[in-house]
Deep mutational scan, measured.
Amino acid sequence: SRSVIRSIIKSSKLNIDHKDYLLDLLNDVKGSKDLKEFHKMLTAILA
């Protein structure tokens, strides 16, 4: 869910600018399909 993804971003080791950017992107995501794609992208970034 959106709140879980937000929590993953906030607890990541990324610097604050990257976190803010990803949180802004997350706010722009519409629909469950796009949310799944965003989660895939985030997982790849944090891997």
Rank of each mutant, 00 (worst) to 15 (best):
K13D: 08
N27V: 08
K19Q: 09
V4I: 10
G31V: 05
K36N: 08
L42N: 00
K10Y: 11
I45K: 03
E37D: 09
R6G: 05
L26C: 01
M41S: 05
E37F: 10
K33E: 11
L35D: 01
S32H: 12
K13P: 09
I9G: 00
S11K: 13
S11N: 14
E37T: 11
S1K: 12
N27T: 04
I5G: 01
D17C: 08
I45S: 03
R6A: 13
L26F: 03
V4E: 14
L26G: 00
E37G: 06
R2P: 06
K40V: 10
S32M: 12
H18S: 08
M41V: 05
K10G: 05
K36M: 15
K19N: 01
R2M: 11
D34R: 08
H18E: 14
L23T: 04
D28T: 14
L46T: 03
A47G: 09
L14S: 00
L46A: 01
R2F: 12
G31A: 05
I5A: 04
H39N: 08
D17E: 14
L46Q: 03
M41I: 07
G31H: 08
K30D: 06
L22Y: 04
N15C: 05
N15Y: 06
I5D: 02
L35W: 04
R2V: 10
L26Q: 01
H18T: 15
D17I: 08
E37R: 14
T43Q: 12
L42E: 00
A44G: 10
A47T: 11
L42P: 04
A44Y: 07
K30P: 04
N27I: 04
K13G: 11
K33G: 08
S1I: 15
L35M: 08
L14F: 03
V29W: 04
Y21R: 10
D17W: 09
L42Q: 00
K10E: 12
F38L: 03
D20P: 01
I16W: 09
V4P: 04
I16L: 11
L22W: 04
L42M: 06
E37N: 12
F38N: 00
V29A: 07
I9M: 01
A44P: 02
F38I: 02
T43K: 13
L14R: 01
E37I: 13
D24K: 14
N27D: 06
K13M: 07
L23H: 02
K36T: 09
A47Y: 09
K30W: 07
S11T: 08
N27G: 10
K13F: 11
M41K: 09
I8C: 04
K36R: 12
L25R: 08
I9P: 02
L25F: 05
L23Q: 02
K33A: 08
K13L: 08
I9R: 02
S12F: 04
D24W: 11
L35S: 02
K36V: 10
S1V: 14
I8M: 14
R6H: 05
D24N: 15
S1E: 13
L42W: 04
D20V: 15
K19T: 04
R2Q: 07
A44Q: 11
G31P: 03
D34H: 12
A47Q: 12
N15K: 08
L25W: 06
D34T: 06
Y21P: 01
D20A: 15
K10V: 13
L42A: 03
K40N: 09
I16D: 13
L26S: 01
V4D: 09
H18R: 09
S11D: 11
K33M: 06
E37L: 13
E37H: 10
K10T: 13
I16Q: 15
S12C: 04
R6N: 05
L25N: 02
F38H: 01
V4S: 10
I16N: 13
N15R: 10
S12W: 02
H39I: 12
S7C: 06
S11R: 10
R2S: 06
L46S: 01
N27S: 09
S11L: 11
S12P: 01
D28Q: 12
S1P: 11
S12N: 01
S1Y: 15
S1M: 13
E37Y: 08
I45G: 02
D17Y: 05
N15G: 12
I8H: 03
S3H: 13
K13H: 12
T43G: 09
I5H: 02
H18Y: 14
A47P: 04
R2A: 12
L42V: 12
L22Q: 00
K19C: 01
S7L: 11
D34A: 15
L26D: 00
N27P: 02
S11C: 04
N15D: 10
F38W: 03
F38R: 01
L14I: 05
F38A: 01
K19G: 01
Y21H: 09
D17L: 10
E37W: 11
I45Y: 06
D34E: 15
V4Q: 13
L42F: 04
S7A: 08
L26V: 03
A47H: 09
K33L: 07
T43F: 11
N15L: 07
S7V: 09
S3F: 08
N27F: 05
